[in-house]
Amino acid sequence: MSKPVRVLIVEDEPIIADDIAISLEEFGFEIEEIVASSEEALAHLENHQPNIVLLDIKIEGGLDGIRLAHLINEKYQIPFVFISSMYDHNTLTRAKSTNPAGYIVKPFKESDLKVNIELALTKNNPIMPPLDEQKELKFFVKQAGAMIPLDFNEVTHIEGDDNYAIFHTNSGKHTVAHTLKEIDNKLSNRGFCRVHKKYIINLSKVDRIEQSVLFIEETMIPIGKAYRKGFFDHLAIF
């Protein structure tokens, strides 16, 4: 039996912190500790190794949640998810600079906690195929009369367009003459998941989920009703 995921909660509002803890325990997570300040969080991290940190931005102590997140990156390399009622441009810009594993806006649903934690851990532990299959993680596109290999790990998401599929990467788009169903059959066990009749996403690239949509950086992708359960099942880690 796998060990439960250990969570550190950094939240200075006791009622909210307790609600988060109760919800996560019902989902099977283990709460290592609830702390209210940056100093308490750092003291805990000196002696413990949680799998993930849930981090409010407005907390007690000498550091706010974003400055604390920078320290977590520098010293502990533990994934963290922000939980905050703040989503103004300045706050989001500062938060993005820490490369968080997720960002949940208060108020939120219990399912948002579970999904974002599982996504964060999926991103932190990407699924890699056996070595003898890694050569298949490349596809070829025609460019200037040549066949150019591209690594599937570069792909953020794939968009279907009738009998063609458009591979979106950080460096551009590449169109191949395959249906989305054909692509899905090859990638479903390799860290990719179909979330809509027109979209397949790379699970390691998802930044956050909000109700019926997910975000990969600034790109919003709908989650179709027919694919919702399969998507959430794909994220399950215990």
Rank of each mutant, 00 (worst) to 15 (best):
V105E: 07
L137R: 11
V115F: 15
S97V: 08
G62W: 01
E133Q: 15
K138D: 00
Q143W: 00
S85M: 03
G62L: 09
V81L: 11
F108M: 13
D132I: 03
F108L: 13
E60N: 07
K109Y: 13
N116P: 08
G102I: 14
L92Y: 04
D64W: 06
A69K: 13
E133P: 05
K106A: 10
L71T: 02
K114Q: 14
N125V: 06
I104K: 06
L113S: 07
K96A: 11
I66E: 04
E110A: 15
P129L: 15
S97I: 10
S85D: 08
N73T: 03
Q77M: 07
Q77E: 10
Q143I: 05
E133F: 11
P79S: 06
E136R: 14
N125H: 15
F140I: 03
F139R: 01
S97L: 14
T98Y: 02
A95T: 06
I59N: 03
T93C: 04
L121R: 03
L68Q: 03
I78T: 13
L68S: 05
P130L: 08
G62D: 13
L131R: 02
G61C: 11
E60C: 00
I127W: 04
S111W: 12
R94H: 10
I78P: 07
L71N: 03
N125Y: 14
P126E: 10
F108Y: 15
K114W: 09
Y87Q: 08
V81R: 06
L137T: 01
S111F: 14
H70I: 13
R67M: 13
A101N: 03
I59H: 04
N90T: 10
F80P: 02
P129E: 12
E74V: 15
Y87V: 03
D112H: 12
G62Q: 12
L119K: 07
G65W: 06
T91R: 00
S84A: 05
H89L: 09
H70Q: 15
V105H: 04
A95P: 10
L131S: 08
K114A: 04
K96N: 11
E60L: 12
N99A: 11
K142F: 03
E133M: 14
I127F: 10
K135H: 11
P126I: 12
H70F: 14
I83L: 15
K109L: 14
L63G: 02
Y76T: 08
A101E: 01
K75S: 09
P130E: 07
D132N: 11
Q77L: 06
